[in-house]
Simulated scan of single mutants.
Amino acid sequence: MASKVDQNEALKKENKKVLPFRYQFAAGAAAGISEHGAAKDGQGYTGVLDCFRKIIRNEGATRLYRGITAPILMEVPKRAIKFSSNDTFGPFYQRLFDVPALTQPLAVLTGASAGAVESLVVVPFELLKIRLQDKSSAARYNGLVDCLTKVVRQEGILALYNGFEATLWRHIVWNAGYFGCIFQVRAQLPDPSQSANPKAQKTVNDLAAGFVGGVVGTTFNTPLDVVKSRIQSVAKIEGVRGKYEWAWPSLGVLAREEGLKALYKGYVAKILRFGPGGGVLLVVYSAVIDMLGKVA
């Protein structure tokens, strides 16, 4: 394990210049686009490599990006806010707690804070997505616009924020794990400035740190993701208490009725996406930040 001094020195070397928020936001947006391009659904294939090989052979490389427009509607602002908020909270907490550089606890705190801000953006998108995907409710809607219209008309505008508390916790936990791991993993890896190929070493470090962060964040937040989907899939009826309403009590209900295994439904699929996706996000974000830093 690296000492706090080593961690602080490593972080200082990687974050010598704090760029304006607009550059952080743009870099996060670019990372969001790239992550969705890399994390395609593998249904109908024997594995990720088989999926890539067959799509490229049968449909061409450009088909790897089919259907990217709709996810970008949420993912671009979501990822942009994630990274720009994290980079903004870092210096804020350093000043607040009077510390010269980011530490492991502050990395976790900045990640959690970024997750809280991110959740404000994603809740309406998540609710509509869940309504359209859930078998019990999907038949009521004829598409995204129809779903939005019916939810607002039948349940009120605030219904778009049903499940906000669960979504808030989901993003706090994921981002705390993700950015906390990035800080720790980077501190254990070779210093890019001491490498024969600094750019390549930095890419490897970011890919490894982002991958570990994605796996850890997903491992911790999957139960919250499961209960969030349960909460958002059912329309609220005035005067009727729902089976799933608040995140932490819902975890208990789900575990008691369906077993602890139910809390990790879809875990493998999430790891296959958010492990590599977490690495891609960090690599692209760091690369764009470095590029913008040269012209800022």
Rank of each mutant, 00 (worst) to 15 (best):
I81L: 13
I81H: 06
K82G: 09
K82L: 14
K82N: 10
F83A: 00
F83G: 00
F83Q: 11
S84M: 01
S85M: 12
N86S: 11
N86Y: 11
D87L: 13
D87G: 10
D87V: 06
D87K: 12
T88R: 05
T88Q: 07
T88W: 05
T88E: 05
F89S: 07
F89D: 05
F89Q: 03
G90V: 10
G90P: 01
F92V: 13
F92A: 07
Y93F: 15
Y93K: 00
Y93M: 10
Y93S: 03
Y93E: 05
Q94V: 05
Q94P: 02
Q94N: 12
Q94H: 12
R95S: 15
L96H: 07
L96S: 09
L96K: 12
L96A: 15
L96Q: 10
D98E: 07
D98G: 03
D98C: 07
V99W: 06
V99M: 06
V99N: 01
V99Q: 07
V99F: 04
V99T: 14
P100H: 10
P100A: 10
P100K: 11
P100V: 08
P100C: 03
A101V: 08
A101D: 08
L102A: 05
L102K: 15
L102T: 12
T103E: 05
T103C: 02
T103Q: 03
Q104E: 05
Q104P: 04
Q104L: 13
Q104A: 12
Q104H: 09
P105V: 14
P105E: 07
L106N: 03
L106R: 11
A107Y: 01
A107R: 00
V108R: 10
V108N: 00
T110A: 12
G111L: 09
G111S: 06
A112W: 06
S113D: 04
S113P: 02
A114R: 10
A114N: 05
G115T: 10
G115L: 05
G115H: 11
G115S: 11
A116L: 14
V117E: 09
V117G: 03
V117C: 11
E118H: 08
E118Y: 06
E118M: 15
E118P: 04
E118S: 13
S119Q: 14
S119H: 12
L120F: 14
L120Y: 04
V121L: 12
V121T: 07
V121S: 14
V121Y: 12
V122E: 14
V122M: 11
V122N: 12
V123K: 07
V123G: 03
V123S: 13
V123I: 15
P124F: 03
P124M: 08
P124V: 08
P124D: 08
E126Q: 09
E126V: 09
L127M: 13
L127R: 15
L127F: 09
L128A: 09
L128E: 02
K129L: 10
K129Y: 11
I130L: 00
I130Q: 01
I130W: 01
I130E: 08
I130M: 01
R131Q: 07
R131N: 02
L132P: 00
L132Y: 01
L132E: 04
Q133C: 10
D134L: 00
D134Y: 02
D134I: 01
D134H: 03
D134W: 00
K135D: 13
K135M: 02
K135S: 13
K135T: 11
S136A: 15
S136G: 14
S136K: 10
S137C: 03
S137P: 08
S137H: 01
S137T: 11
A139L: 04
A139E: 02
A139P: 00
